[in-house]
Amino acid sequence: MDEFDTSATNTWCPGCGNFAILRSFKDVLNNLNKEEVKKEDIAITTGIGCHGKIFDYLDVSGFYSIHGRAAATATGIKIGNPDLEVISFEGDGDAYNEGISHLVHAARRNIDITVLVHDNKIYALTTGQFTPTTPIGYKGKSTPKGNIEPPLNPIEFMIASKASFVARGFAGDRKHLKNLIHKSIKHKGFSIINILQPTVAFQNTWKYFRERVYKLQETKHDPKNKIQAIKKSKENEQKIPIGIFYKKQRKTYQQAINEQTTNKKQNIHKVIENLK
């Protein structure tokens, strides 16, 4: 037990990748605690889906938001109280289907929130329909003859949407994931981690991913190089890179607001000076 545990009974399937995400996040919170980011400085939002249950398993403040809208709710929280560290948990169906526009605009404005997408490539809570990240050919209850829609590449998409921190994690490598989550929270600006989350009930991809993932940090990849990041994002089949694809410090939404307000004040002072 640690101070972020709750008394809620966990109803995720045994063996689900969600457990690793929960554990990694709690570890990060405990570390942040040592860095004097207090429990009350943290706010989370969740969407609707299996991932959303994380809300019940974390003793931190926040909002169990509505389907697809977790990033928009997180944006509101951050604007309302810029001192909070705001983390938004979303699912692949949730974030990349119904809520995709919110992600684009949050990334574009560079609002300083962190989005963690539990990407299990399926609607698991409604028991197995295909989502925007489901591979072609997947046979589920809504696609008995196999999915015919080419999947979205979340990494490529988020880089194109001007996100200033784009990473991929894997629930099967907790140490790596923990490090990524910590860095994404520390990043000033919009950060997103697409977390590969095997779901034992519908697409048990533990083995598939374990055999394919490799760490970008162990290659010569330069996260500041956008072209290289996009090239890397297209590696999706034989080898699947995890780690930070792209990271660039740029003006956050809050900084832009502050500048505008300061400039306005300065201009008013100038006008008053001239009148004298």
Partner: peptide
Amino acid sequence: YPITPQTHIVEKLSQFVAD
């Protein structure tokens, strides 16, 4: 679009189409 408790209706229909 899937949503509980409706999902079974359209799943069944998609099965009919597939079959």
